[in-house]
């Protein structure tokens, strides 16, 4: 690699504070650990994202393809100021979320991808990335858009987001804004999690990011076990 040219292609990055891991108790009683992914985690995350690109249902294919590109771009230093959080249950990866910072004050929410459904995992992960933006990075607003009706309901409606002018980085529909005020208004209702994570739970999560088989991921995304793809 020609590092001189690479120097022009590789974006500068802000120093971002660490996101302290937290544990969310799910309806099943299961413990969802949400923690920050590092660049080094990306190859294993991509394994979990790859099968989702085959699923048309609920726009998983578009979201999966975009998340794949965004994470790969971050890994190979082609996306600026991106962060990624991941969710694990007993070590098993069940979802990822990512955001890119347009500036220190303005975040651009990229995607929320859950590979386990029916437990609000996507909602918990989305809430966590907003928590990171507002409470740890100290942003004033995050711009949000959605590809799927589920995303629209979860974000635009549940958080009472405000329509904004212009375009979101992902293009598509109207961008919406989650302001710091709106975030704190809805925090008690939508943002779950406890800290510190008990050592034994965190140790399991950090020991290994377990990725389900492609069949398992597709089965979970598509709903009932018996459903044909």
């Amino acid at each position: 690699m020609d590092m001189e040219v690479e120097g022009y292609l590789r974006p500068p990055e802000m120093d971002l504070p660490p996101y302290p891991p937290k544990v969310v108790t799910l309806a099943t009683g299961g413990k969802l650990i949400i923690r920050q992914a590092s660049r080094a985690d990306v190859p294993i995350l991509l394994e979990a994202v790859r099968p989702t690109m085959k699923v048309e249902r609920d726009f998983y294919d578009i979201v999966g393809a975009r998340v794949y590109a965004e994470l790969l771009g971050w890994y190979r230093h082609r996306v600026r100021d991106e962060f990624c959080l991941m969710g694990q249950i007993d070590g098993l990866l069940v979802g990822v979320v990512n955001t890119r910072l347009y500036s220190r004050e303005l975040g651009i929410s990229l995607h929320t991808l859950a590979t386990e459904r029916g437990l609000r995992i996507g909602a918990h992960l989305f809430a966590a990335k907003m928590e990171y933006s507002f409470e740890y990075i100290g942003q004033e607003e995050v711009l949000i858009t959605a590809e799927s009706p589920i995303g629209f309901r979860r974000w635009m409606i549940e958080y009472e987001l405000i329509e904004r002018e212009g375009q979101h980085e992902l293009g598509g529909a109207t961008p919406y804004g989650l302001t710091k005020e709106l975030y704190y208004k809805h925090k008690d209702r939508l943002v779950a999690g406890e800290r510190p994570v008990p050592e034994e739970l965190l140790a399991v999560a950090e020991k290994e990011i377990i990725v389900a088989s492609e069949d398992d991921i597709l089965e979970k995304i598509l709903g009932a076990k018996r459903r044909e793809r």
């Binding site: 969310v24 309806a27 009683g29 299961g30 009932a224």
Partner: peptide
């Protein structure tokens, strides 16, 4: 029941007794 829509075991902690269960079961 293989014909059942919801195939998920839930717990009292997850839907009622945990201080944050209102987020899972609003």
């Amino acid at each position: 029941n293989p014909y059942a829509h919801i195939q998920m075991k839930i717990t009292m902690e997850g839907i009622l007794s945990h201080p944050q269960s209102h987020i899972n079961s609003p």
